[in-house]
Simulated assay, not measured.
Amino acid sequence: MNFILIAVIVLGGIALISAVILYVCSKKFAVHEDPRIGQVSAILPGANCGGCGYPGCSGMASALVKGADAGSIDGLFCPVGGSDVMGQVADLLGMAVANTEPKVAVVRCNGTCELRPRIAVYDGLKTCTAVNSCGAGETGCGYGCLGCGDCVNACAFGAITMNQETGLPEVDEEKCTSCGACVKACPRNIIELRKKGIKNRRVYVRCVNKDKGAIAMKTCKAACIGCGKCEKECKFDAIKIENNLSYIDPEKCRLCRKCVEACPTHAIVAVNFPAPKVRTETSGQNVESVASSEKVNPSVESKQKEIKE
């Protein structure tokens, strides 16, 4: 009986001492969390995509609260939630948020199956990262899309799909949140986040091939050859040629589309612009009638001269 009592007393004493130690440690090493972090996290969409530059929405919430304490949250933006969510966060923190123009992912490769023929067959792990590590892939272009869909798998919003006919990824502007996950997933850096532009209209070079013109054209008929015609045509200094490749600065571009007409390989594309007006048959007939009347007038004048003579 004494042994049982002693064991109970000893165990009770150990439990009491451990409880005291744990209590002291919890008070001494306690980490205080600002309640606003939880409130901001509740407003954020919870996608945890990393598009804001932080590992998740909780990291973004902490950064926003710290920024508010420092006096500004400029430069912090949630691409998924957009301006509406950032406005709610700003109201909660009592801050002003700068208006950020929305962006969208664009695929800077126009090397379709027709324009960029296959010269080899890859037999291995079907990921862009794996194919890229093996070389140029199934085509002769070492810069273009590999077509394995790493960007599709990386997109958590279903905004990217592979076009089976062209072999290229396509971005749904309505679903794209510009989180940047596809940009990070592409081993060849052909996906870029660009401003949506006025009325969602954009002009950009759909090529990243840095080979010289003759070599680039052998691998892809739609490649940029770095001829510089677009640069000469642009009146706003928005186009630069570097490493045999043309690039259009979205900040300077005025969407005049003169560079699109000047490009001999059609590597520059204009998105969401209205289709050019096609002359109707009626207008064509009118033009022909006017032209015919113009041709008749000289003969009438000659006849009148003959009569006078």
Rank of each mutant, 00 (worst) to 15 (best):
R108W: 09
G87H: 08
L92P: 07
G94I: 06
G75C: 12
V104H: 05
E114A: 12
A98V: 14
K126D: 01
K126T: 06
G75K: 09
E101F: 11
K126L: 12
G111D: 03
F77T: 08
M95G: 03
R116S: 10
P79E: 12
C109E: 00
T100H: 13
G81H: 03
V97S: 13
D123H: 10
R116C: 10
C128W: 02
V97F: 03
T100V: 15
G111K: 05
N110K: 08
D91R: 12
A96R: 15
G82A: 04
D91A: 11
D91W: 05
A90I: 11
D91K: 13
G82H: 01
K103C: 09
D74Y: 04
P102N: 04
L92H: 12
D74N: 15
L93Q: 08
P102R: 10
A105K: 01
A130P: 08
T112E: 04
G94H: 03
P102H: 09
C78I: 10
V107N: 12
M86V: 02
D84T: 15
C78R: 07
T112R: 06
R108V: 06
F77Y: 14
A96S: 14
Y122F: 15
C113M: 14
C128G: 15
L125D: 09
L115F: 11
P102Q: 11
G82I: 00
G111I: 03
D123G: 00
M95N: 03
T129Q: 14
D123K: 11
V85P: 12
A120V: 07
D84K: 15
K103S: 14
A120T: 03
M86Q: 09
A105R: 06
G124M: 01
G94D: 05
C109A: 05
L92S: 06
G87C: 13
C128Q: 02
G82Q: 00
A105P: 08
A90L: 07
C113R: 14
V97G: 11
C128Y: 07
P79I: 10
G75S: 07
D74G: 11
M95I: 04
T127D: 04
N110A: 13
P79W: 02
V121L: 04
V104G: 05
M86F: 08
G82F: 01
A98S: 15
Q88K: 15
V107G: 00
D91N: 12
V107L: 08
T129M: 11
C78V: 08
A96W: 09
E101I: 07
G82K: 04
D91Y: 05
L93F: 07
L125E: 14
A105T: 13
V104M: 03
K103F: 07
P117L: 05
T129K: 13
C128H: 01
V107R: 05
Q88A: 10
R108C: 14
C78A: 08
G124Y: 01
P79A: 05
V89P: 02
C128E: 05
T112G: 09
P79R: 02
M95C: 02
V104S: 07
C128F: 06
T112L: 00
V89C: 04
A90Q: 00
N99P: 13
L92V: 04
L92W: 12
V89I: 15
T129C: 02
V89Q: 04
R108F: 00
F77K: 01
F77S: 09
V80M: 03
V97N: 11
K126N: 09
T127I: 04
P79Y: 03
V97T: 13
F77C: 08
T127V: 09
V97H: 14
A90M: 08
Q88L: 08
R118F: 13
G87Q: 10
